[in-house]
Design a protein around this nucleic acid. Sequence first.
DNA 1: AGATTAATTATGTCTATACATATATGGATA
DNA 2: TATCCATATATGTATAGACATAATTAATCT
Lengths: 232, 232
Amino acid sequence: MTSRRASFRTIRDELSRRIAERIWLPGTLIPGEEALAEEFGAARATVNRALQELARAGILERKRRAGTRVALHPVREARFVIPRIRQEIEARGSEYRYRLLSVEEANAPEVICARLSLLTKSNMLHVRCLHLADRVPYQFEDRWINLNTVPDAGKADFSTIGPNEWLVGHAPFSNAEFTFMAGAASADEASLLQIREGDPVFIGERITWMKGAPITLAHLVHPSSHRMVTHL
Amino acid sequence: MTSRRASFRTIRDELSRRIAERIWLPGTLIPGEEALAEEFGAARATVNRALQELARAGILERKRRAGTRVALHPVREARFVIPRIRQEIEARGSEYRYRLLSVEEANAPEVICARLSLLTKSNMLHVRCLHLADRVPYQFEDRWINLNTVPDAGKADFSTIGPNEWLVGHAPFSNAEFTFMAGAASADEASLLQIREGDPVFIGERITWMKGAPITLAHLVHPSSHRMVTHL
DNA sequence: AGATTAATTATGTCTATACATATATGGATA
DNA sequence: TATCCATATATGTATAGACATAATTAATCT
């Protein structure tokens, strides 16, 4: 018995320590649940919970009959919060401002349809707007909303509320794809973001679906001062 | 009894559906574990597991005595795999190549020390190298390794193995910070990546620590064709 | 009324037990 | 030798019951 009280946290942290300190090297087959349960004076279910958490974190690899081993190539993953522009700006202590640039119903161009895997040229809503932090351009948003999936969007008033804020309240999504990349500012983007044409910009692209049906494609452009930070 | 077999997955997915389909609106107080257990014909522990998973995903908010409610402002987070350059390139079906550009022990410049929150000008190893996919430059890596934390790195041979691969095998990290941004290619970076000076580049910066002690700072530069994709 | 304390209650966790399921292994078969 | 199959085994999941803990609400005291 290593510790008196055997909580799954204690066990998880202890096992985690053994791996971090290379007492158990990558690839090592670690003791089975029963053995660990006895060592920690806990029930197997408790050990199981600890092990499952570590497996979920990618530190351990578990297989029935084969046992549990320290991940050889730990596929470490980091999380990042899906940014909600208003919160993101206000969290920095800046004043959030929003400016609608244009809204129009239109047939989306080929490129957009392709990205959304839409065969027909669906009727879509094209919204362009700008988000400012302390009155400085922070993000230019160029968004297409699928009116077949979200017909209500046609009646929405985007003059004061951003399309993203409207959508989170009206069209929950089940799946999303995020793409991040660097690009050069177009003349249009440059003037809106108050930078020079060709200056590097940080681009986030977000596509969301509700049960396979595409809801929206958002093209989000930040000046190159933007940083996306995350911790592990 | 809604379903015959009550697995925590069934319950989780059903609850998830009710939230997605707005049967339970954000802020709603949902039935307690006992009630759900009865509804699904399952044990409370099973319901608990389902609820905990949803809470962990940010869909539910739970508080003792107060009960469980649908998250009002669901802090959705996405995961991305921490890229391991060789695997990343090989996963695309490309041939991975590595070229060491320079290694030298040196005192890190102020900027680097500051980023690593090091007060003294620690003795560090400066490694510069290039990663290629199908012989085309894919990533330029400019890395500083703290020799006080990882003394062995001084003896390592980085001519065939990249510093990242060496480090994952020799210096496990407990904490990491990732920063992604856009920038303009310097003359140096441009010639290495076979692009033009000033062209936009996608930059990833990675700092890792082992129990508070900084291990390394990696500055990773990709040409603007690079895309970082993740799903939810 | 206001402050302190006790009771209540929903979630959090642990246990012992049972059965389910994937799969490595060795033995039987072709 | 190669293939198939039975079996053993480690993990996966479910359950009833118990106690722990946080937090709200009610009761008590000043």
